[in-house]
Design a protein around this nucleic acid. Sequence first.
DNA 1: GTTATAAATTGTAATGATTACAAAAATGAA
DNA 2: TTCATTTTTGTAATCATTACAATTTATAAC
Lengths: 147, 147
Amino acid sequence: MKTTVGVPLDIVGYLKGMKIKPSLIRVKVLDYLIHKRNHPTADMIFKALAGEIPTLSKTSVYNTLKSFVLAGVAQEIKIENTEVRYDVFTNVHGHFKCTVCGSVEDLKLDAYNITSDDLEGKKITEHHVYVLGFCSNCNKKKNKKNI
Amino acid sequence: MKTTVGVPLDIVGYLKGMKIKPSLIRVKVLDYLIHKRNHPTADMIFKALAGEIPTLSKTSVYNTLKSFVLAGVAQEIKIENTEVRYDVFTNVHGHFKCTVCGSVEDLKLDAYNITSDDLEGKKITEHHVYVLGFCSNCNKKKNKKNI
DNA sequence: GTTATAAATTGTAATGATTACAAAAATGAA
DNA sequence: TTCATTTTTGTAATCATTACAATTTATAAC
Ligand SMILES: [Mn+2]
Ligand SMILES: [Mn+2]
Ligand SMILES: [Zn+2]
Ligand SMILES: [Zn+2]
């Protein structure tokens, strides 16, 4: 499949390949995820698409996201317990969340390994890394205040 | 303060040192956290203590845990978005959660470091690592079935 | 095109952990 | 004791997510 940086250009074809029928809603949601790259909540997606799809229901967004996760098209990112965020990029990477503005960014993990005796006898299916702090913008603002 | 493996033996004294008045509930909750080491939810703590403190309310458990987190006595562990778990050990370590039985265990991180260009300009305040999979017990059971 | 069946979408109600808040009880100094 | 402060409690509210049934849309056979 034709991609740039792991992003499928042909969204309809990509969904078909993943055995998901490319309905309007599903195409729009995937398109949003791919091009915004902002790790949105279901509600953020709903608000963003409600304009172009006036009949859209929030349940449909949830249904769509659930089918994406099931098919391996997207993954759930759980940082706060108050919200689930969604990510189309399923390769291994971590996340950074700004505790001020709430933005979530990707974190390439250059040297990432978990070694632990405590994993003896276990079967690992997923591992997650996330970091909290001040994003560049919010950090700058904070430093100005403290001058 | 006298401790074994980071566990304060004198719970009342420890709470006083952390500027938390050692009420019965607070002592019992901290005692539970320290000696069970099971990363419980607020509800698990409530159910466990309701017997010895018949008047206990769930709100008090939440209040207590909130004050512990504020004072740095405990930390919140967020793996599922359906529950917050609590941990008294605030040194750096990861967690493992079994997707079958739901148990949560500590994960010593022998060689743990996150290096990423993406952290440029940010200020990090917390980092979290967690792993999902089958615990030793559930893994054994699973293997037996597949023989 | 009509009809029949399955799939997708919607609206509303339910769930459940957590929080808000005000009343009641306990504490502790004066 | 008395009064103020802190702690604890019970109940109601919040809010993201799920359950579920009804409606709409898509698909294929006739
Ligand atoms: Mn990501
Ligand atoms: Mn732990
Ligand atoms: Zn920020
Ligand atoms: Zn298990």
